[in-house]
Design a protein around this nucleic acid. Structure first.
Lengths: 204, 204, 204, 204
DNA sequence: AATGAATGAGGTTTCATTCAT
DNA sequence: GATGAATGAAACCTCATTCAT
């Protein structure tokens, strides 16, 4: 899961994420991404077999970012509410930090469901993405379940509860504008408030 | 603001909303919409000057749906929590009822912000949409503010609180599948639970 | 040749000439002409079977304008140079007077030669136009020939000489801007100078 | 101003000029040009951003042809009449030599003036064209002015005189048919006669 | 590793024309 | 006499992709 990625590839992924974010996944052309890179399409096609594969790799990377950021924050010795608060804030910081990537994920979530034809490579990547997403969700699922059994949270359908939780944690993706130059203080406030709202929605 | 819309135009809007929802706003072609209508592109272009204008009109309609549904449910005589609960449920019912339209709104929210070139007409429509959105948000903002002053809600940044609230209320758009034939009972459960979670997230 | 034309038809022809002039024959759409008229395409198609027929009728009218204006100015009793000067000025005044129509003629002259398929009606009209044009040219041809035999003009190929003469007489069509509001005095100057240059080019 | 143009680009320009000439600027489709090239539209759009830009480049090239041909023929040591005669003949030879290009120029001169919406690139090219045209006109303007001061030409409005002069020099564009295989002798005759007529029209 | 030329499929849009009313 | 809806052909343009270098 932690593939080594070359500098050139990494640059391409950053440029792609930026373009997908600013122009939209569908509107951004491979030429746009090349222009952002300051080179030509050829470079991109040398490293990625198709636009779809490039997109999928961006999504995979985004998933990896939050997974690695949150994984280490889980603390089974703390009450679930405390542990989840750490995770929630970690998630939010990471989202704000690699916003372009997470905007891309969001778009693919909301886009049409009726799949267009995909190559084999793209289907494999999509499967990896789904697996990663399930694993990430499981991190939260476990802690929410613990919170319920500890009596801190209302005993609701786990799937719905976790979905709602993650939705709120991702909410800055909808409205945060990094180009306006947010202060660290502002970011801290956001992380604290959103985490607090998200946990409040679960409370008994 | 409540323009009369001809039957033919209305049919086109429904078909467009359906296609935008199932295929995605960008992927759905004008031909797809025409096929859904069982007629030709020409019919669409006779009534709408561009795909962008058609999309904007769909969005405007979606906004009108929830506005009209919720507007009448506000009750300033009730405690804010009660009034907001009525509004929240009304919103959810309307969203589930005209799901295609709201899926479209969601997509345009998450897509790229860096405008591609728009015609005059499209810019005017976008301005109308923004205005309508602000007005709708204001309905909730007022009641949330009242709830805070009544002491029922935590005193948080209003903008963030309302944004979070509406996001949760719109969450079914992400996962609800009407094609699976939801029972009225199920719909009632959804409306109740989501409304409850949304209000819980605001509570002091 | 002097068909009676109804008021409605005449209005349509004026609107068409105006649009053809300002937008170009190809760029001007039937809708543009209808808009200029303040009515809809239907009105145009009620009176003219096709855009091509409408164009041809405009051209025919333009030809008629100059023919009728110049015809009566010929004076076989005067020296050819004098007679031609009267004709030349008459032509220029008429061109400036119905500029839109003459701009249209010019465009069809310069456009591509490889005909697109024409309906029967259009071919008939085109034939009428060619006939009219030949007749009009003949008016000048006769007088130029007389001028040569009188020794006032250089003995050159008649066709080339008349073509050159008419080209110069039509030259204001290329650059005259009626919207700048030319004074009668300016118009008189133009008519005199151009006529003088045109005749000078023939002189022995 | 003398940009180097690749072979492929040059081929495209020739094909475009040919199609614009034979079919008319508006009637000729990009597909027609591609067919003339024996390749696909894609090739054209790889080199030129739009049909308008392609057209403008053709015009620019045409302007360059005559400018370079005539520039070196000016001889301030000769009487203006002689110098202008050299220029006039040079212009005519060049026009006959690159007739397709000059037919295109003519068409754009006579077409509608009310601009349809143009991209930035096209507007820049149009500006270059206008500048080039003014410079070319200036070459003749200077010599005509000299001719007037030398007493060889009638003292008329310079703008009108030069416009008339150039119109006559361009007149073969209206009627010359290269496909009929003109002999060198015929071409020489044309150049001599037209030059003589054009200068005659200026004479005192 | 990267470029630049070229392709072809598919997209949006325009527009002359027909037709029921 | 005139309108408004609808059509279908054809236009311009975009863009993911391939390939020779």
């Amino acid at each position: 899961m932690l593939e080594q990625i070359s500098t050139s590839k990494s640059e391409i992924l950053d440029a792609a994420a930026h373009c997908f974010m600013t122009l939209g996944v569908e509107s951004a052309s491979v030429d746009d991404i090349a222009a952002q890179l300051g080179s030509t399409k050829g470079r991109i096609y040398h490293h990625f077999p198709s636009k779809g594969a490039l997109l999928a790799t961006v999504q995979l990377r985004a998933a990896g970012f939050t997974y690695r950021a949150v994984e280490g924050l889980i603390d089974a010795n703390l009450p679930a509410v405390k542990s989840l608060d750490r995770m929630a804030r970690g998630h939010i910081y990471e989202v704000l930090n690699s916003l372009a990537y997470h905007k891309v994920i969001l778009q693919t979530y909301t886009a049409g469901t009726q799949a267009k034809k995909m190559s084999r490579v793209e289907m494999d990547l999509q499967e990896q993405i789904r697996t990663g997403h399930r694993q990430y969700e499981m991190l939260f699922r476990t802690e929410v379940a613990r919170g319920i059994s500890e009596g801190s949270f209302q005993d609701r359908n786990l799937t719905a509860a976790v979905a709602g939780l993650l939705l709120v944690l991702n909410s800055p993706v909808f409205w945060f504008r990094p180009e306006r130059g947010a202060s660290q203080e502002f970011i801290d406030t956001i992380a604290r408030d959103i985490s607090s709202m998200a946990l409040a929605s679960l409370r008994a």
